[in-house]
Design a protein around this nucleic acid. Structure first.
Lengths: 215, 215
DNA sequence: ACAAAAGTGTTGCATATACACCCATGG
DNA sequence: CCATGGGTGTATATGCAACACTTTTGT
């Protein structure tokens, strides 16, 4: 490869994180509002440009911290978006990740050097994002839905100990459909995704719930 | 993103194709031998640099054609490799694809502008590839093995019409294990991966075989 | 005793596995 | 008629779906 060939010039790498949570039975995504052009004032997914001396995992964690103040999340690479016109600045290939988090356990910054706002948004009400992020988000939702029963991708959605009805509601919200409680419990236990912690949560007015943990 | 920030300079995109076939019951991969530095004289997977005006699918097909003369294959994106030191020339992120082909139906070039040799190699005997292609290849093999029973990823491994014993041998070779013939047939038919074409192949010395096609 | 929410077990169905015999052909 | 290789069916086990009643607690 001739590094001076103009066909190879000005290529960049975006790292993007679709970060999800569930709150009050609603499936939500984290968005930030851009402070600068391009797409100034637009809401987008968390992300930014990868430096040429870091791998994309590192870049994604750095961008997450810089733009939200959040650290230490679990994440998973799931796709690439490479349309040469997806960014107006220069050719940017997007390496996209998915993550899930317990929103009650995390503080985030409403404003940073490059963002003027940040918040969780109900999936149902998100549209008109900057760049191609509507498409990336939809792709992430599909990916998440396909994987919640076979992997422990939701393991950071709750605190360490959680009740099965909580998890059940989260699944129903993410999948947008009802799931039988008995089969749900059996399936997750059999597939070794969660296990009984032996602890009990006492709640007034109700029968106490067992507390589970992700394996 | 400040396009003039040196941290964003000199990044490139490799597109790489792990192209497989099965011949005489052996699972093989297509390799090309580099004519130029870096890795001059080394065998590597098919691939090259993506232009800044094409998406990675387009680039992969172009590179395939330029370096082998092969056109019109089916392929599937499956991973990204982003170690900043994976190429000695400059930072190159690798977008990697997998493909499968009927080697008897395709002519390839032994030499091109950038390659001095090209051939199919038994998977068991491949090592010492240039760049990080040993790792990429192993990852591709794992991916292929995980997906041959759930997708029609092998649909171009044979001519349009093929017999079930042929396909059976191919699966055994790829998975490196024996598979019961009866269950194999039932599974692929039930999952609508292949179907009976109604045609028969006459072979001397044996009972004629039914010919199947991928759905 | 009743309302609210959590816990549990059985049955049927579909899918995957294990396994052995018959059939068509050419020599 | 036999050797070679291709074709088929049944019985079992496992995973998923459908389904209703009992338990605990607070009021």
């Amino acid at each position: 490869m001739d590094i001076n060939n103009p066909l190879y010039k000005n290529q960049g790498i975006h790292v993007i994180l679709s970060l999800f949570t569930v709150e009050d039975g609603k499936f939500k995504v984290f968005l930030i509002k851009r402070k600068n052009e391009p797409y100034k004032g637009k809401w987008i997914l968390i992300g930014g440009a990868c430096y040429n001396n870091e791998d994309t995992d590192t870049a994604m964690k750095r961008e997450l911290f810089e733009k939200t103040g959040i650290k230490d999340i679990n994440y998973k690479f799931y796709n690439v978006f490479s349309d040469p016109n997806r960014s107006p600045v220069c050719r940017m290939i997007a390496v996209v990740y998915i993550g899930v988090i317990d929103k009650t356990r995390v503080q985030f910054l409403k404003e940073t050097e490059k963002t003027q706002d940040a918040d969780w948004f109900d999936i149902e009400k998100v549209s008109g994002l900057g760049y191609d992020h509507d498409k990336i988000l939809q792709n992430a939702i599909d990916y998440l839905r396909r994987n919640i029963f076979d992997t422990n991708i939701l393991k950071d959605l709750f605190p360490k100990y959680f009740t099965l009805p909580e998890l059940h509601k989260a699944y129903e919200s993410i999948l947008k459909k009802q799931i039988d409680r008995r089969n749900f419990r059996k399936r997750l236990l059999q597939q070794n995704i969660i296990k009984d912690s032996g602890k009990i949560e006492e709640v007034k007015g109700k029968k106490p719930s067992k507390l589970y943990i992700f394996v």
